[in-house]
């Protein structure tokens, strides 16, 4: 780890001023940043410790029915907040399907948003990586690409975004609040992650000094509580990143899907909203044929970036299953194995 200066400002304004200095990085739980620093993938000159900043640790329901989650709320505290988990069960399940209990206890929701890709070539200092060093090239292409992107990738970057939480958030039209040297702004979570272009590698759209201060879920996000599921396929059924994952949430009345949200994880540099799949089911009485058509539509634009064509079929089947399980109704309690595709059967619902 490189030498660095350490600052612990006591206000957001002081933190942003310190964070705007060249070479500064914000430290909260540290579970991703320290890991990156240990392998030399990040070498900040100054760590600005934001973990004790006041006012960023609350979960509040606002007057208009939206919910604001402070950036320093721990992943485990949000998942275990009974009111939150009841209103947004797929978000809680997504949180609990990620990492380990120890990591969820330390990691913050803001940090979850800001975590880096787990592309091995980003971590490996001997490999070329456009994300780490713009213009360097990408050694992932033509390398070990079984877990890489099948949507929204370019020759610049084929990495995926690793978060489970963000997949469920994207389905619910969450937005991200940021505070920077030029003031505050809010951006949709989906657009917060820019996709790679022909010339740029993409990543989280944070401007110099900007600090994630909160996440918000709009009022209509609570309409999906009765029919929500997040499921995830991984190399082992706990403590592993998604190969592919899917969030499906529906608002149903009189047997008709009034509204439906579908998003996928592990497939792109951002949590991927499958709007064509949503359109296939919206305002309709769901049938097996319509669900299959929705799953096909979700992956219609997919193409392998290497040895990962299998992910396209896998994601299609997972979306299909997520929709089926969401339509069947949210499980009474979060399954013992959160995110497991087998959990609904095991729960004997």
């Amino acid at each position: 780890m490189n030498l660095f200066d350490y600052k612990r400002p006591s206000s957001i304004a002081d933190a942003v001023a310190a964070g705007a200095e060249p070479g500064a990085a914000y430290l909260a739980g540290g579970t991703n940043l320290l890991d990156l620093m240990k392998v030399g993938a990040r070498k900040p000159d100054v760590l600005v410790d934001i973990s004790r900043l006041p006012g960023l640790g609350e979960i509040e329901t606002l007057q208009d029915g939206s919910v604001r989650i402070g950036a320093l709320v721990r992943n485990s505290d949000l998942a275990r907040d009974a009111g939150f988990a009841k209103a947004y069960p797929a978000v809680a399940e997504a949180l609990l399907s990620g990492a380990s209990a120890q990591l969820r206890n330390a990691a913050t929701v803001g940090g979850n948003l800001m975590q880096q890709t787990r592309c091995l070539y980003f971590y490996d200092q001997q490999s070329r990586c456009n994300r780490r060093q713009p213009g360097a090239g990408c050694d992932a292409i033509g390398g070990e690409t079984g877990k890489h992107a099948v949507l929204g990738w370019t020759k610049q970057c084929i990495a995926t975004h690793p978060s489970d939480f963000c997949v469920a958030l994207a389905a619910l039209d969450a937005s991200v609040e940021l505070q920077g040297p030029d003031g505050a702004r809010s951006v949709s979570l989906e657009e917060f992650y820019t996709l790679p272009t022909e010339d740029t590698p993409g990543g989280a759209d944070v401007r110099p000094g900007e600090l994630v201060t909160a996440l918000t879920l709009p009022a209509d996000a609570a309409h999906f509580a009765g029919h929500a599921r997040y499921i995830k396929l991984r190399d082992r059924t706990s403590y592993a990143f998604a190969i592919v994952s899917a969030a499906a949430m529906a608002d149903i009345s009189d047997g008709v899907v009034q509204d439906i949200r579908i998003a996928m994880g592990g497939v792109a540099a951002r949590p991927w909203r499958a709007r064509a799949a949503e359109a296939a089911l919206k305002s309709k009485a769901p049938t097996p044929e319509l669900i299959s058509a929705a799953a096909e539509a979700a992956l219609a634009d997919a193409s392998p970036s290497g040895d990962n064509a299998y992910k396209i079929e896998l994601a299609k089947r997972l979306v299909h299953r997520a929709i089926e399980q969401a339509l069947a109704g949210t499980p009474q309690t979060i399954p013992a194995l959160p995110g497991s595709v087998f959990a609904a059967q095991a729960a004997g619902r």
Binding site: R8, L27, L34, S76, A101, Q102, A106
Partner: peptide
Amino acid sequence: TVLVDGRRINSCLALAMS
């Protein structure tokens, strides 16, 4: 794994100063 203020965390990813 240790308990910090009663919660289990990975002490290897915790900056002592923090």
